[in-house]
Amino acid sequence: MKLGPRQAAGIQSGDKSPHSKMPAAIDAVNAVLENYARRGVFTSFVREGSRFRFTWLWNRPFELRFDARQRALVFPAILPKPADIEKEARRFLRSCAAEDRPVHRRIDPERMAVSFTKQKGALTLVCRVRGGDYEHAVRTAINLVNEMFVLFLNTEHPRYLMEQFERPED
């Protein structure tokens, strides 16, 4: 595998064990994510089978798992201890598919369905891919998470970010 600029971006290749029933899909997922690392959006990136770990917003670690069985992109426990914001977070997610949202930012339900599941007291984001366009799905999912943090949480829930994500207090 050629590394080149990826090394400079902190990209590492990880576990290569056979894991996926959908090698083409996971390769597509990997390619899109790796490109974010090449562009410096992620400051580090490692693939471990169907699990991808990367350093992203505010230099924090993020994880995305590809669930081949469900054809889903999963961000495990992306919102820990969401008690104060759970209702609003679910509202935000619904708003991302709303008709009044610009088309280029609207989640098309025919191409992807997004939901939160609650596991061990945290919200996991599940993006189920419909139609098989994994490149589009990864981009949509990444931008959904991006918007959730830099717009929704940053603007509406600064205290949650302070408490759960160690964002500076003053």
């Binding site: 974010y36 959006v41 917003l57 505010w58 230099n59 981009r139 991006n146 918007e147 830099v150």
Partner: peptide
């Protein structure tokens, strides 16, 4: 700013 500090998209 660092990545995540300005509200632009990942793309």
């Amino acid at each position: 700013p660092n990545v995540g500090e300005y509200a632009f998209s990942a793309d």
